[in-house]
Computed example of a mutant assay.
Amino acid sequence: MARQKKEGTYINIKIRQDIYEQFCEYAERKGQTKTMAMERILEKYLEAEAKKKEERA
């Protein structure tokens, strides 16, 4: 049975090759798809930035 598609938005970015390789290794090590890994990385980063902003206020 196919996985249910989730709502989302496609993004297209260009990053340095060394960062991409690190990212692919990270996702594989964590047993995550690249999409899942990127979502989690971005979410964690954005939450940390929001927390910093709150602390400064």
Score class of each variant (00 low, 15 high):
M1A: 13
M1R: 07
M1Y: 03
A2G: 12
A2T: 11
A2D: 11
R3F: 02
R3M: 05
Q4A: 11
Q4D: 04
K6S: 12
K6H: 07
E7L: 04
E7I: 05
E7W: 08
G8R: 03
G8K: 04
G8P: 02
G8N: 02
G8I: 05
T9M: 10
Y10I: 13
Y10G: 08
Y10R: 10
I11H: 10
I11A: 05
I11G: 02
I11D: 01
I11F: 15
N12K: 11
N12I: 13
N12E: 07
N12W: 05
I13E: 10
I13S: 11
I13M: 13
K14P: 00
K14A: 13
K14I: 10
K14H: 11
I15C: 14
I15M: 15
I15S: 05
I15N: 04
I15A: 14
I15K: 03
R16W: 11
R16G: 09
Q17L: 10
Q17R: 15
D18C: 04
D18E: 14
I19H: 07
Y20P: 03
Y20T: 09
Y20K: 15
Y20C: 09
E21G: 08
E21S: 15
E21W: 07
E21P: 00
E21D: 15
Q22V: 03
Q22N: 13
F23H: 08
F23Q: 03
C24I: 03
C24Y: 09
C24G: 02
C24Q: 15
C24W: 07
E25P: 02
E25D: 14
E25Y: 09
Y26S: 11
Y26I: 05
Y26C: 08
A27P: 04
A27E: 02
A27N: 07
E28A: 06
R29F: 12
R29D: 01
R29V: 02
R29S: 10
R29I: 04
R29Y: 06
R29N: 07
K30H: 04
K30S: 07
K30G: 01
K30C: 08
K30N: 08
G31Y: 00
Q32K: 14
Q32S: 02
Q32F: 11
Q32D: 03
Q32A: 01
Q32W: 10
K34I: 07
K34E: 09
K34F: 01
A37Q: 01
A37V: 07
E39S: 11
E39K: 13
E39F: 01
R40W: 08
R40N: 14
R40L: 10
I41T: 12
I41K: 00
I41P: 01
L42M: 15
E43M: 07
E43D: 15
K44P: 03
K44N: 14
Y45M: 10
Y45A: 14
Y45K: 12
Y45S: 12
E47C: 04
E47H: 07
E47W: 03
A48F: 06
E49R: 08
E49I: 05
E49P: 00
A50I: 02
A50V: 08
A50N: 03
A50L: 11
K51P: 00
K51E: 09
K51A: 04
K52M: 03
K53Q: 06
K53I: 09
K53W: 02
K53V: 06
E54S: 09
E55F: 05
E55A: 12
E55S: 06
R56Y: 03
R56N: 00
R56S: 06
A57H: 00
A57I: 00
A57V: 00
